[in-house]
Nucleic acid binder design. Structure first.
Lengths: 142, 142
DNA sequence: AACTACATTATAATAATTCTAAACTGTTGA
DNA sequence: TCAACAGTTTAGAATTATTATAATGTAGTT
C-alpha cells in the first residue's frame, strides 16, 4: 500500500503538480495489488462511487492523458469505440474477451517474443502489441 | 479486374442482396491489385470523389459492417478515434505509422507466427493481431 | 501575502457512430 | 408479369466518446 505522500513525490518526479485531483486519481489507480485495466468511463464511476469524490470529466481525461504521456499509464490498442488504459506499463500483451469486454494481461510466459524481420526505413519501432481476441466457444453446445 | 456480375454473385453467395449501393462499394473496395486499408470516412470520400456517386453515410456503415460480418472485410485494431478496415482478410499483421496514420501490411515473412501458450477456459481464440507502431526516427538528426 | 503559471471546471463543440421511421427495391411465387 | 413482403436505403435525429473554451481556482515561488 503506497502512502499518499509517495504519490505526491511521484507526481513531482514526473513533473506534474500534485493537485488534490491527481493524488485522488493515483489512489484509485495505483493503490492496487494487481494491474488494472479501465476506460475513462470506468474510472469516472469508480471515483464517484468507490471514493465518493467528484472530479470533472475533463480533468479525468486531462489527468489520464498526462499520466500516459509521462509513462505512468499505458494505452492499449483495441478496436473499439473507446480507449482502454493499463496500470501495467511494462511490455506485455493482452487477451480481450469480446463477450464481457474485459482485458486480461498476458505475462511474458504466455506469449513468445514477437520476432519482427521487416523494418521501415527512417522509422523506429515504438511498440509491438499482440491482442488475442477471444469469445465464448459455442461450437460444443450448439 | 473482377466484373460487376461477379460482385453480384459474390454478394448473393454471402447472403446479401446485390443492391446498387453494395455493388458500387464492391467496385471501389475490391477492384484493386493491392490490399486496401481505409476508414469509413476515406471510403465515403472515395465514393463521392472517385466514383461520383452518392451513397448515404448510414448505408456505408451498414454495408461495411455487413461485409465484415460475412468475412469479406477485416477490421483492424488500432487505438484510435476511428475504425480501420482491410480488404485483405487473411491472417496477417500491420505496421502503423504514427506520423502519417497509415497502415502497412506485414506479409507472413515479416513476422514469425505468434505462439500463444495460455488459453482461457470456455473461450476460443477469434483473432491474433500484432500491431507494430512506428514513427520517424528523430534521434539521429536531433 | 501576492504573483504567476499551471489546473480544474462546467459547458459547448466536435467527431464517430448508431438509431429511427419512412420510402424504396430485390426476390419470390401466383 | 406483377403483387407482396422482407430486406435496404435514406435523411436526419440521437448517442457516445472526446476535445476545446474561457472563467475560476490553486500550487509554488518571491
Amino acid at each position: 500500500m503506497v502512502k499518499n505522500c509517495n504519490f505526491v513525490e511521484k507526481l513531482r518526479d514526473l513533473g506534474l503538480r500534485p493537485t488534490k485531483q491527481r493524488v485522488k486519481m493515483c489512489e484509485v489507480l495505483f493503490n492496487r495489488e494487481k494491474t488494472f485495466h479501465f476506460t475513462i468511463n470506468d474510472l469516472v464511476k469508480l471515483i464517484s462511487n468507490e471514493m465518493n469524490e467528484k472530479i470533472s470529466l475533463a480533468t479525468v481525461y486531462n489527468t489520464v492523458h498526462a499520466f500516459q504521456k509521462k509513462g505512468y499509464l499505458k494505452e492499449i490498442s483495441i478496436n473499439s469505440d473507446k480507449s482502454y488504459f493499463d496500470t501495467n506499463t511494462s511490455v506485455h500483451h493482452h487477451f480481450y474477451d469480446e463477450d464481457t469486454h474485459q482485458l486480461i494481461d498476458c505475462d511474458e510466459n504466455d506469449i513468445d517474443p514477437v520476432n519482427i524481420k521487416k523494418n521501415i526505413t527512417g522509422k523506429k519501432i515504438n511498440s509491438v502489441e499482440v491482442l488475442v481476441k477471444v469469445a465464448s466457444d459455442n461450437q460444443t453446445q450448439k
